[in-house]
Structures are given as structure tokens and as C-alpha cells.
Design a protein around this nucleic acid. Structure first.
Lengths: 237, 237
DNA sequence: GCAGATCAGTGAACGCCGTTTACTCTGGCA
DNA sequence: TGCCAGAGTAAACGGCGTTCACTGATCTGC
């Protein structure tokens, strides 16, 4: 492969890129998404702001690169959890992965907001068109870790095809974006069920991280566990 | 009540305040939360930016006032839906209210992002402490519209107290913030169930509005209907 | 070994932004 | 009529993203 010695210049350049991203993540953690500014990053790495344009075409692209890295981080975290419970039932493992997701989100609220919050204009531009790009690839790899374990489950317990709400062709058209990325690995109703599970997980975690449940509850964990149990049970049938 | 004639000056002042808020909402709709800036608002109403400080102590306060208004708008929308189906079963009505919520969110994505998205620093400061204030009051009134209909249901179909995951005192401590605001109207497990339903609704709608489901699905509505049916069924037992 | 191209980085500038300060003007009230 | 609170302004500060013209250093081909 193209593993030629990276020519001093390229090596320095790569080091600078990671230095820039590190600074940006420090700022993100310290002050949330709005604290990530070109000028602050430049100050941190000891450069002037325009110099950053040698490495990224603008702030949006830099933020996008960071989001991509974060998806990779999150994926690895969740995969580690999955590996930790490798000898459990697949669905049990999915439960632990969901807990790992929640834990990561609570430990990294600013990063979570950047990845899953209301899209900052600019990030939207890139992501909304579903254009194939590094960030979508990273997101797909993240989804893949869940699909892999789910695949184990449905290999052991084939899906008894219950009648679904939607006729198959309609469901197929509905799930077209998913099918284009992940292909035909599960019965369509299973995919729909998984999406429901994912939105439940997202809803609960996002509300907790964003503080939108503080009006109701002192601790979200029992709610989370109850909902997780219900959802895994539903996934099991 | 203090309904003395509002003294010309006060009347003009009130008009200016609504003019400012209208401009802010126009900007919000046109360009999303980041487009709401004091200077842009000032340009719109034909003033200079510092003049706005005669009406609001700063941008954050202005945004907060708008969020409060938006909660009221949303509440009225949902209540109108509830009134429209006044002769339906309460749980059927809750379903229609959920649809009304989704419809409003899709029709007002920028407003939804401001109210339910990742908290902009500043809005957080006020809201996170759960301090009693206009925005929390408006949020509580919004919740109240759901509780009212839910109350009808449980008046007709008393809750057969099934064993819950949590012992009662723990559940009571868990729900302390809720109980402090809304009091003791439902059996605690019902409240927990309602919170689960609310987070499901939020998760689905937020993901749709924020475009976080575009990778999977061309149209979220069937997913929404399926999840809504499951949730109402669960609320019914 | 050296000329010329490429690249990293700077400084100044433009037009945004929120906010503060000092100031002017005007409408309402005693 | 005179005064004063309140509405509004202009100028300024510091921060922001981005562009442009420019300087050195470094690598490349001869």
C-alpha cells in the first residue's frame, strides 16, 4: 500500500493536524461547542488564525473532522463493552452496549451535543444530504457495531415472520437509505424494530444529557434501566 | 387587579417589546438559532443594538423570553388538537396530541431546536437549575395539557397497581422534582410510564427534526405511527 | 549546488457579533 | 414652565470567521 516514508514535511504536517484537533477537543470539553473557535485554537497551538487554513478549509470542516473522530471514539468504547461481555447472550450484550453509550454520553456531554444535538448550521450542510463522507462512514461503522451483535441474535433465533404494519414493498422503499448503506442483512420488520429501539435510546440519553429531564427526576438511571428492559424484551420477540 | 390604564408610555413600550420579539422570531425562522443576534434584530426594528438593552438585559434574556412564548404557542397548538378530538377516548386523544406535537415540530424546526435542542450556553444557565421562572412555568403548562388528558383516562380506568421495579419510597425520591411541580395526581408507576412515553416521543421527533434519521429512512411517519401505537398500548395497561 | 516552486506562517483588514459607556433628545408630569 | 426619567444614539472594546498580500523556509529538478 502507499506506505512510502512520509517525507518529513508530511510528518510534521500530520503532527500539526493532530495538535490542532487536540486543542479543539480541549476547548470543546472546556466550553462546549460554541467555545470551539479558530482563533482560540490558534492561540492554543501558538499560531495565528489564518494559519489554520493551511490545514482545514474553514471552521466547519475542522468541526466535521472532530465529529468524525468522536464517532470513532464512541464506536471503540461501545465495542470494548461488547467485547467485555463477549460470552453473554447477544441481546444482553446489546443492553450493555446501550449502557456504555449512555455512560459515554454522560462523560462527554459537549462531544455528545456536537454529534447528536441540534445540528449547527454548517455541519448540517454536509450531513443532511447523506453524502458519503468521513463523518457518515464513521457513523455507519458505529451503527455496524450494533448490527453485528444483533446479527448474532437473529442467527440463533430466526425471526418468525409476524405480520407487519406495512406491506413489504412500502417498507423496502421506506428503508431505502438504510438498505443502501447496510444492505439486506435482517428482515425488514427487524430493522424497523431496531430503529425504534435506537430512537428510544437516543431520546432518553439526549434528554438526560441536555438536562431536559431535570424537571421530573433526580436520577435518570432507573428510568433508563426500565426502558432498556422493555426495549430488549421487545427486540427479543 | 392592577388594570390601570397603561399610561401611553407603557403602551408604546409594550408595542416595542412585541415588535422586537417578532423580529427575533422572523430571524429565528429564517436562519435558525444562530441567526438571532441583537444587531440583526435592531436592524429589523430600525434601532441600534444598544437600544435593545432598554427592553432586555441581554441577548440571553431575549432568547429566553422567546422560548417562553414558544412553549405557550406549542401548548395552545396541542390543546387545540385535544379539543378537536374532545369526544374521543382520552388515550386516543393523547395519540392525536402526540401527532400534533410532531407536526408542530416539523413545521417549526428552528423553534423546536431552540426549545428542545442542545442547550445553548446561557439558556442552560437559567434552565438547568430548575429555577422557577417564566420558561419553566410555560414548560409546566405544556406538560399540564398532557397530564389533564391522562388524568381523564386514569379516572375512567383506575390503575391496577402492578408491582413496580422500584420500591415506593425510592420512586418517590426519584420523582421529587416532578412531584414538587405537579403534585400527587397519579400513581407513581404511572408517572414513570408517562415519562418513558414522553422520552420516546421526544427521541423520535428530535431525531426526525434534526435529520438524524435520514441515513435510515425516507419518511419517519410510519416509524412514528408504529411507535406511537406501541406506546399508547403500553400506557393503556 | 543551486534556481525555482511549494508550503507554513504572519499581519492587516473587512464585516460580523455582544456589551458598556457617555451622551442627546423628547414626552410626561408636577 | 421646568425638570427629569426614559428612549435612543455614537463610539469604543474585544472576540469572531475569513481573505489577501506578503515573508521565509523547505523541498525538488536540473
Amino acid at each position: 500500500m502507499t506506505m512510502t516514508t512520509p517525507s518529513r514535511r508530511e510528518r510534521l504536517r500530520a503532527e500539526t493536524v493532530t495538535e490542532i484537533k487536540d486543542a479543539a477537543r480541549r476547548l470543546l470539553v472546556a466550553g462546549g461547542p460554541p467555545a470551539v473557535s479558530l482563533r482560540a485554537i490558534a492561540r492554543d497551538v501558538g499560531m495565528t488564525a489564518p494559519a489554520l487554513y493551511r490545514y482545514f478549509p474553514g471552521l466547519d470542516a475542522l468541526v466535521l473532522a472532530i465529529v468524525t473522530d468522536l464517532f470513532e471514539d464512541l464506536r471503540i468504547t461501545v465495542e470494548d463493552v461488547a467485547a467485555e461481555y463477549a460470552d453473554e447472550e447477544p441481546l444482553t450484550r446489546v443492553g450493555h452496549m446501550a449502557r456504555g453509550f449512555r455512560r459515554w454520553a454522560l462523560d462527554h456531554p459537549a462531544e455528545f451535543a456536537l454529534m447528536f444535538g441540534s445540528p449547527v448550521p454548517g455541519v448540517t450542510q454536509f450531513a443532511e444530504h447523506c453524502a458519503p463522507g468521513p463523518v457518515n462512514d464513521a457513523g455507519a461503522r458505529f451503527g455496524e457495531t450494533f448490527f453485528a451483535v444483533l446479527g448474532e441474535h437473529f442467527a440463533r433465533h430466526p425471526f418468525g415472520d409476524e405480520p407487519d404494519d406495512l406491506p413489504d414493498p412500502a417498507l423496502r422503499e421506506l428503508l431505502r437509505p438504510y438498505l443502501e448503506t447496510f444492505g439486506e442483512r435482517f428482515p425488514l420488520p427487524v430493522v424497523a424494530l431496531f430503529l425504534a429501539a435506537w430512537t428510544r435510546l437516543y431520546g432518553l440519553v439526549a434528554m438526560e444529557v441536555f438536562g431536559h429531564l431535570a424537571w421530573a427526576v433526580t436520577d435518570v438511571e432507573p428510568l433508563f434501566e426500565a426502558e432498556l428492559a422493555r426495549t430488549v424484551r421487545q427486540l427479543a420477540r
